[in-house]
Design a protein around this nucleic acid. Structure first.
Length: 466
RNA sequence: GCUCCCUUCGUCUAGAGGCCCAGGACAUAGCCCUCUCAAGGCUGUAACACGGGUUCGAAUCCCGUAGGGAGCGCCA
């Protein structure tokens, strides 16, 4: 049997890492099993659903490369179908009209809470034959009153619920629109979902959904309820910590594969392996290995993984991401050799592509502003003399390569009886404006001879002027 | 309140009765490497929530306790 999974977000808030992880697990499982992955937008709550949230879902999934084999489907476009199924259930007696008013139900709930009981609908209208004048009824599902519902959950194991704990939930509001738990059931059945992988906040909904599925003559799918993600502080994900749109991570310069890698390891592991390519994830992932406990989001580890992915990637593959970040800084270049060179020399000193772009500004500007502290330390008397001494041999180099540049600086250091640092730092400051950069030889090669010499001259001039 | 779920280093996890005085990773401390910053290497600090059982033997099985979470809506 072909595995069919789905990701069914509701566009009432922005897609964040919690949602992404359940999407990832569903996607991975489908890929691993050679099945299909469906995207379904659960937008039945027209009040709270927003276009912006839908956009983030679609763009976020695209950015992450979690491509769906089917969809996106929208529940708001399936109302016809839901009405039809409600009709069937009414006809078969699996559903009935309930004429209790909201006020009556609220009162009932209050009484139950006062009595320290679990608030629930008691089935007042179950056997009602006549309509109640002036009240638009809702439709309720007639839940079995006895026996148990057993969920064989792939992550939690066997979970048993008593039917007596379940009440008759509303499947259609008085205005005729269907409710969430009902739509899910109809959709999962119609779309042939074989494995429902979702947040464990839905575990309590599962027995009702299974009962409805059975009432419709369907066999319930296999369920896997994955734990939620907590903020770094161990509390529920908040706006302040982690509950931001996934697209925020793109802006911050994270690689989609790194985010996915981080998320897949949050609650799942495969031996001691920490870094996974997409293919490795697919090959190694099994929903059965997912842990049961909620886990805290750790931004530092994400950062580390992002760098690991940058260091392992094909440099050319990172160029488009780097350019996107550069453009944000108002910089750009189509010099592929330069961009790849920057990637190679900067990726071990940047955790994100944003940081890489920021650290690489000096490659793209005509001139540089020299950091005052760095100048004071490295461009004082001795430093300036070095700039003078290094200028001529650099200008005279037949081939402008890192190797040749290294030779010049090394020879000079030897001649002065000093370490390479004595020579490299003044040059670095003059040329990059700061005391930190990739190795000086690689930096100069990428920068090019003209700009190197021009910056040495500029540094000497401004020192003379100042 | 009721029902359901969860509990190994600060964090993510390995561990399915002896291989564990608990392993890996991030973070953190120290050292090494070194032209800066990194990256990398090495070393260290650091955990089985608690209490009872079962067993020759328990992080692993059972029972409680505590703590955390979710659900209980004409929200999803």
């Amino acid at each position: 049997m072909t595995v069919v999974t789905r990701f069914a977000p509701s566009p009432t808030g922005l897609l964040h890492v919690g949602g992404v992880r359940t999407a990832l697990y569903s996607w991975l499982y489908a890929r691993r099993m050679g099945g299909r992955f469906i995207l379904r937008v659960e937008d039945t709550d027209r009040e709270r659903s927003t276009e912006e949230a839908v956009r983030v879902i679609l763009e976020g999934m695209a950015w992450l490369g979690l491509t769906a084999d089917e969809g996106p489907y929208y529940q708001t476009q399936r109302f016809e179908r839901y009405r039809e199924v409600i009709g069937q259930m009414m006809a078969s007696g699996h559903a009935y009209h309930c004429y209790c008013t909201k006020e009556e139900l609220d009162a009932l709930r209050e009484q139950q809470i006062a009595r320290k009981e679990k608030p629930r609908y008691t089935g007042i209208c179950r056997d009602r034959k006549e309509p109640r004048p002036g009240v638009q009824p809702v439709v309720r599902f007639r839940n079995p009153t006895e026996g148990t519902v057993v969920v064989e959950d792939l992550v939690h194991g066997t979970v048993t619920f008593q039917n007596s704990e379940l009440d008759d939930l509303i499947i259609a509001r008085s205005d005729g629109t269907p409710t969430y738990n009902f739509c899910v059931v109809v959709d999962d059945k119609d779309m042939g979902i074989t494995h429902v992988i979702r947040g464990d906040d839905h575990l309590n909904n599962t027995p009702r959904q299974m009962n409805m599925l059975r009432a419709l003559g369907a066999t319930p799918p296999v369920y896997a309820h994955v734990p939620m993600i907590l903020g770094p502080d161990g509390a529920k994900l908040s706006k302040r910590h982690g509950a931001v749109s996934v697209l925020q991570y793109e802006e911050e310069g994270y690689l989609p594969d790194a985010l996915l890698n981080y998320l897949v390891r949050l609650g799942w592991s495969h031996g001691d392996q920490e870094v996974f390519t997409r293919e490795e994830m697919i090959a190694a992932f099994d929903i059965k290995d997912v842990g049961k406990a909620a886990s805290a989001f750790n931004p530092e580890k994400l950062l580390w993984l992002n760098q690991q992915h940058m260091m392992r990637a094909e440099p050319a593959a990172l160029v488009p991401y780097l350019r996107a970040q550069l453009r944000r800084l108002g910089l750009d270049s189509d010099d592929q050799r330069l961009l790849e060179g920057i990637v190679v020399s900067q990726r071990e000193r940047a955790k994100t592509l944003k940081e890489m772009a920021q650290n690489s500004r000096f490659f793209f500007t005509e001139t540089v502003d020299i950091d005052a502290k760095a100048a004071a330390k490295h461009l004082s008397g001795a430093g300036l003399e070095l700039l003078v001494k290094v200028r001529e041999p650099l200008a005279a180099l037949p081939h402008w390569t890192a190797e040749a540049i290294h030779g010049v600086l090394n020879d000079l250091a030897t001649a002065l009886g000093a370490g390479l640092g004595k020579v490299a730092q003044p040059v670095r400051v003059a040329v990059t404006g700061t005391a930190v950069s990739p190795p000086i030889d690689a930096t100069l090669e990428l920068l090019g001879r003209e700009r190197t010499l021009a910056r040495l001259d500029a540094a000497l001039r401004s020192a003379a002027a100042g």
